[in-house]
Nucleic acid binder design. Structure first.
Lengths: 298, 298
DNA sequence: CTGAAAGCGCTTACAG
DNA sequence: CTGAAAGCGCTTACAG
């Protein structure tokens, strides 16, 4: 027909119908492989419903996050998936609610503020890691990575603590080390750990990246074999690591799909409800925890 | 003022001005850490100019890529940054040109078809890796990862070959192994390598992910110390790897910024030209190549 | 059932 | 210099 250059203008259509098929996604860091995998699931589920995503990065800065959300609103996005920046204020959520913009929080929620949410059960994740290490007979523990403001970190630590308590371990057998949740943070935290009089027998990390960094620090000191390490997220490289990294799998791609589904529902029939989809993580036992001869697989 | 709920409608403005501040980005795989880092640079340079990006994934499928580009056009994007899917046809580029849509190809170009392009000098990357390994005295070489359709792979191999030739090595000292350009592909290729009568002395990989997979295969066979390995891209985990991975750094974030700059230029003043920005890669010498005692740093 | 008109929310060119 | 009107490209409700 007029396929000599005609292209349908969705913008015009959106203006008329007052609906768009674009969804805004605010992540803290696109380069984080965990988010990368999550976005894969999110985008493909969105695409199946004929939606696109506009993804922006807040650099974990609440002020920037505010600007980005406002800008996304100007784009008339149909909804918002947000991994809230650390320190997001109560008024941030209130603003979202007041605007009646469908939204779902991802992997991080706002303290004491009910909102639609998709994420892993971090308390359980922490417990799973600790219980396995307990079974290995470890007596001293460290949790490495993340900062005290991070809710996911707090929950994981709570899970670890509860498992240790149940096993009758004294609280002073457990230390927390803060650091950025990536390789660089882990490396630096590992160095700090090495300066202490004694290495913990077990280290549970906030992410696999942190575990990678911790290992590098340990290796340089020639002490990698003295500790058992468990990572978090089960990113693709975890299974290839030496030793193959035992990790708490959160299945980011599945989380991403769930986010899309919940958001799409919220867009189709705004409930104003606060549905939560919490997924149970799974401990991928490999060798860094001290287990041996586990067959390799991805 | 009327900040009681008013939000500016960019869609309406775009309709009127016939200009948008949205740019389409087509990648083959969002989860690939190389692309993740590239997107960081791309998005931040775009943001500085007041632009946003709509990123979509083609899964390296040319048909899907076509659909996505058409859809992006319907969104009236101001321009397109494309990492073309393997096997993208000549008519794909012709269609782009006919539509007068500003575009730039990223990290992969179309065989014999001049177009605006940003990417690393892959021939040089291959040479750099081979020359270093040659200096280590290696006599047999393998290039692992990617498929024969990939131009970047072909160029890197050409670079490797030219260096080996100059060093007087016979062509039969060099083999090519195809595999997916990620960890899973490297693992599988590594296993194939182990089945051959003899391991090459040096392995150059299409990506760091491939190198990680190769190492896992080698380790399981207890033969990791027999070969020297060099990765490609210098992804963040490369420096943390055991042994710290020597890698050809392509500085993806810098590439991303360059893409944004070129595209923004093309949007501001459509030249119809075919500017190319080729960046020289840099060999990050660490220990997997056989060097020792290189101080750790990210 | 078909076709012309109105209107979504902006910007820009034009009249007063 | 200010204010009202036209129009971007669609869709939808309405008149014929």
């Amino acid at each position: 027909m007029r396929e000599l250059g005609y292209v349908y203008n969705r913008g015009a259509a959106s203006l008329r119908t007052r609906r768009t098929t674009t969804v805004g996604v605010v992540v803290t860091d696109i380069a984080n492989p965990f988010f990368g995998e999550l976005l894969v699931g999110l985008e493909s589920a969105l695409a199946e419903a004929g939606f696109r995503s506009l993804v922006v990065a807040s650099s974990d800065n609440p002020v920037r996050q505010d600007e980005l959300v406002n800008e996304l609103r100007e784009y008339q996005v149909a909804g918002l998936a947000i991994m809230p920046a650390t320190g997001s204020s109560r008024s941030f959520l209130e603003g979202l609610e007041a605007s009646r913009m469908p939204h779902v929080f991802v992997t991080k929620y706002l303290e004491g503020m009910p909102a639609p949410y998709v994420g892993p059960d971090d308390r359980l994740g922490g417990r799973l890691a600790a219980q396995h290490l307990l079974a290995h007979g470890c007596q001293t523990y460290a949790f490495v990575g993340g900062f005290s403001g991070h809710l996911s970190r707090r929950d994981r630590i709570e899970g670890v603590r509860s498992a240790l308590r149940e096993a009758g371990l004294e609280p002073d057998r457990f230390t927390e080390i803060e650091s950025a949740s990536n390789g660089a943070g882990g490396l630096e935290a590992g160095k700090r750990l090495l300066q202490a009089r004694q290495l913990p027998e077990a280290i549970i990390c906030q992410s696999d990246g942190v575990a990678f960094g911790v290992y590098r620090a340990l290796r340089e000191a020639g002490r990698a074999s003295e500790v058992r390490v468990i990572g978090y997220d089960d990113v693709r490289t975890a299974a290839l690591w030496e030793p193959p990294l035992t990790s708490v799998a959160t299945h980011p791609e599945r989380l991403g799909r769930a986010v899309a589904e919940l958001l799409l529902e919220e867009i189709a029939t705004p409930s104003g409800g606060v549905t939560e989809k919490i997924f149970a993580p799974e401990l991928m036992v490999r060798e860094s925890c001290g287990c041996h001869g586990v067959p390799s697989s991805l």
